[in-house]
Design a protein around this nucleic acid. Structure first.
Lengths: 145, 145
DNA sequence: TTAACTAATGAAAGTAGATTGCATTAGAGG
DNA sequence: CCTCTAATGCAATCTACTTTCATTAGTTAA
């Protein structure tokens, strides 16, 4: 059993290696940081948490792109045009409830993938993906104001 | 009958006036352009179509913000961080099927507002909104490649 | 009409997030 | 250990959008 790929750090790094990628200290650290985060995080948050004396933002972005390429992270485009990144189980993807004030994001157990896929195909589209994010003001931020 | 606010240009301009806004030529033209567009459009597309010898992009952005303020347009955040704008019937909002190649967007008759609202409230959130967009490659672009 | 008030506009500069070019560094295979 | 080239860091660039401020032009009242 367990024939599905898992998302342990070894598996992820092995997948990068298989694609011709190298296993560098920064890369390992960035994957570790992604695994530690409970919430989707921005490239800069990831860079700060990595604290390998210093990692350039550009390196974070390039690694995030590589990780997206092998399908282990997803990008979450926000209302304001920025993006967050989150490790996902293979073949999965998540939606979020995001506070408009403090930008905390929690995972929402809700997906409309099937309906969406059917509709999109009916319109003649291929390679379908979808983005869905819910915005609001969380309890804490609401009581502050 | 017809007690709901309509979205004719006169009504929209009247609503702006009511909020202390002025009715300028550029503003009228921008609203007209929005009404002509069948697809959600970028600020720059709107500016180009306005062709009042020249309208500064900044003016387009400011008007779009004002229009959003009175609830007659919605912003559509894209995967790549940019945004499109679309006139919406009062109290309505739409989702789209967007081609990743040519960026054409068509309206999708599908909304998950109710489920989303329930979930978000259960998490203690208020002032809930949601974003949902579906991406794919349209027939035309698919055959090109 | 005209005068006066102030919202709207445009030009230019600024900002934030993300990307690109290029020289340097450092994994990985032989 | 040597070589090859992917990965990195720095600086410059880009894009979409925002801010500042002087000027223009709706609007209201005289």
């Amino acid at each position: 059993m367990n024939s599905a790929p898992d998302s342990s750090i070894e598996t992820i790094l092995e997948r990068m290696r298989a694609g011709g990628g190298r296993i560098t200290k920064k890369r390992i650290r960035i994957v570790q940081v992604l695994m530690q985060f409970e919430h989707p995080a921005s490239a800069d948050e990831i860079r700060q948490k990595a604290e390998l004396p210093e990692t350039d933002l550009v390196t974070v972005y390039r690694n995030l792109e590589a990780l997206q390429g092998i399908g282990v992270i997803q990008r979450i485009p926000l209302e304001n045009g920025t993006q967050l990144f989150e490790l996902t189980a293979p073949g999965e993807h998540y939606h979020h409830l995001i506070c408009r004030e403090c930008h905390q994001a929690e995972r929402l157990d809700l997906c409309i993938g099937k309906e969406v896929l059917g509709r999109a195909k009916a319109h003649g589209y291929s390679q379908i993906t979808h983005v869905m994010e819910v915005y609001g003001v969380c309890k804490d931020c609401d009581s502050d104001s």
